[in-house]
């Protein structure tokens, strides 16, 4: 008798999870190149240290929890690169290493690995570092005084590698949006709400908005698929609420810290958003 196997569809799209994460990591290349251009070799060393920490966390997780090592899917490489770019230039290398380890181990693997973590691992890593080593983490690097058009690219006040160049961040974000790895409304709404609230508050609008956003956060952290809602409508609410929290917390705390905490808050709210803003609520049949 012929086998009856009822399993359509037999085709599948060419996208894959490793591809998503590796492209997201590659979209960080302009940011990394800009920081290399500005600060020399130190960003590379920081990144390598973060990678070492991240991969060590993967193997440690394999030892502790068992199961396979999730290195090939690119999420660890992506998180470590992102973490390194969100560190200040002046931190010692071991900070990056500890950050990478804690992001991947405490942020991701402890919850069961990829797809299971409730908060963004990079934020967990960064906030742990800020809590544990506040003095090291809050040194603003000396950015060389740049003459001519180069100064347009720079934000000397930024304090981290990644936020030193607006243009590079925009290029990387452009790749993400073009490749449809992120929903474009999320960063756009986030910035719009920040801008609107700053107008309302009477703050210097553009500088304040960009500073509050931490520049990389709305593109690489707020849009993380695992910790954001699944629907388009849910994502809009999520972005707007995150911006609101950013301004609210930012009135009491430093701006970038406020952005990080507000993303954590909205990560925690994601299950509620998914529950109350599900796509088909219309006309249920008994």
């Amino acid at each position: 008798m012929g086998r009856v196997k009822h399993k359509p569809p037999y085709l599948s799209s060419s996208t894959s999870v490793p591809q998503r994460f590796w492209i997201s990591a590659a979209a960080l290349a302009p940011v990394w190149l800009a920081s290399f251009f500005l600060f020399g070799w130190q960003p590379l060393f920081l990144m390598l240290a973060a990678w070492a920490g991240g991969f060590a966390a993967e193997y440690a997780a394999k030892l502790v929890f068992g199961g396979g090592v999730q290195v090939a899917n690119g999420s660890t490489a992506f998180f470590a690169t992102l973490l390194a770019l969100m560190l200040p230039l002046t931190v010692p290398l071991w900070i990056a290493c500890v950050g990478g380890f804690s992001a991947v181990f405490l942020g991701k693997e402890i919850f069961g690995g990829l797809g299971k973590y409730p908060w963004h691992p990079v934020l967990i890593g960064l906030l742990l570092l800020e809590a544990a080593f506040p003095i090291l983490m809050h040194q603003i690097p000396e950015v060389p005084e740049a003459p001519g058009p180069r100064s347009f690219l720079l934000d000397p006040q930024a304090g981290t590698l990644g936020s030193a160049s607006f243009l590079a961040v925009a290029a990387g974000a452009g790749v993400l949006i073009f490749k449809k790895l992120i929903r474009w409304e999320v960063p756009v709404l986030f910035f719009c709400v920040l801008w609107g609230l700053n107008v309302f508050r009477g703050a210097p609008v553009w500088q304040e908005s960009l500073r509050q956003a931490g520049i990389m956060i709305p593109f690489w952290i707020l849009t993380d698929p695992v910790t954001s809602p699944t629907t388009r409508a849910g994502n809009r609410i999520y972005a707007v609420a995150a911006a609101g929290w950013t301004v609210l917390i930012g009135t009491f705390f430093p701006a970038v810290f406020a952005a990080k905490v507000s993303v954590l808050v909205m990560n925690a709210a994601t299950p509620w958003i998914d529950h109350y803003f599900r796509p088909s609520a219309e006309r249920h049949l008994a």
Partner: peptide, 29 residues
């Protein structure tokens, strides 16, 4: 080459299925 079954990974809740579902339900959930 066309019908090869690929390796299954954990769900990353990207929401692509929700965006493409013609009956407007949430396959991921």
């Amino acid at each position: 080459e066309v019908t090869e079954e690929k390796k299954e990974e954990p769900c990353i809740r990207c929401g692509e299925c929700v965006d493409s579902c013609p009956s407007g339900i949430s396959p991921v959930m």
